[in-house]
Design a protein around this nucleic acid. Structure first.
Lengths: 177, 177
DNA sequence: CGCCCCATGTAATAGGTTACATGATTAA
DNA sequence: TTAATCATGTAACCTATTACATGGGGCG
């Protein structure tokens, strides 16, 4: 009856790319590129890791030097789960929650002064994020080798940038009306 | 502590544009344009309407011919709530849940055959939706008058189309690599 | 030795999804 | 009149968010 669970699969994917990650590292992944496509906070992640260990999707190791940090790795079962999840066909469109567009929707009069306020603030917000992503792109993928080494990572960063760019261009066309 | 409530504000916006809507009508709004920017199902909406009546954000009337259908209208308090909500500055970026991009992210090898399968299926999905939105645009906004009469509605439909178009173009560039 | 910071972890609570239920209207 | 359909409504359950809690490590 509840919503379909997908957080554990994303964690599997992160661990597949970064064996031995800590919970903190996984949390940070959601603050960077992955956050453009899925959100999760540390208070979801830690219990989920615990559950995944119980289910033998991942295993946990620790370092004698640092009792506190725990390192996670995929098990064979986890690898299977990840791969079969990736192969499940996607039938639903991406889901977007966009308060800005909704507010715009509710203002019916083309000359309502609130439109330009809304648009300008949104432009600032989006341009700031675009700068941030452009910086990351320059830092992470400045050579062809780096791009093909982490191709998936490169792709979704490009995707996020393209998406933002499209939003910004569209907003600028509104301003002129 | 829980997530910030925004569903009632969206319902206010819908009722502002369509006084006398039924729960069914509101539910359908979420299946069309609004659904591109926020999701809600009827099992959320009916209890919410009840609560909003109790809080005097909206009032309910009914038709003697049809006992079953209930019609909702904004109260003055509701109008105030809607307007002050629209004026609250937006500080967070739109939230996206996009399984396709995530799966792409987890495939690191540029030559992995699963990439083209994923991409082709996603292209079909997106193009189908684009056709649907283009049809709606032609039907709803084929004259300048219609566009300025429901400007907000027009804007977000354009936004949704532009966004889809951007996704599709980007996917096609991947295919060539 | 003691303080603060930070990674990890937990609790409380509301939000959202799926499935099921009801009762009036419509159509055969 | 009866069956089916459809709008409305409810229930159970899980997810996610925010806030709070803990305890080791590092640094003074």
């Amino acid at each position: 009856m509840p919503k379909k669970r997908i957080l554990p699969y994303i964690i599997l994917g992160i661990l597949d790319q970064n064996p031995g990650s800590t919970g903190k590292f996984i949390t940070n992944q959601f603050k960077n590129e992955i956050g453009e496509f899925w959100k999760a906070s540390h208070s979801q992640i830690y219990p989920e890791l615990k559950k995944m260990v119980e289910d033998d999707w991942i295993k946990q190791t620790s370092d004698s030097n640092n009792e506190k940090e725990k390192y996670y790795h995929l098990t064979n079962l986890g690898k299977e789960k990840l791969n079969s999840w990736i192969d499940i066909p996607i039938t639903a469109l991406p889901v977007v929650e966009d308060l800005f567009s909704l507010k715009l929707f509710f203002i019916q009069d083309p000359h309502d002064p609130r439109i330009s306020t809304l648009v300008n603030k949104q432009l600032n917000l989006l341009e700031e994020q675009l700068d941030h992503l452009n910086d990351r792109e320059k830092m992470l993928f400045n050579t062809q080798e780096k791009r093909s080494k982490n191709y998936g990572h490169y792709l979704i960063l490009e995707r996020a940038i393209s998406r933002l760019d499209n939003q910004i261009k569209w907003l600028k066309t509104i301003k002129q009306c």
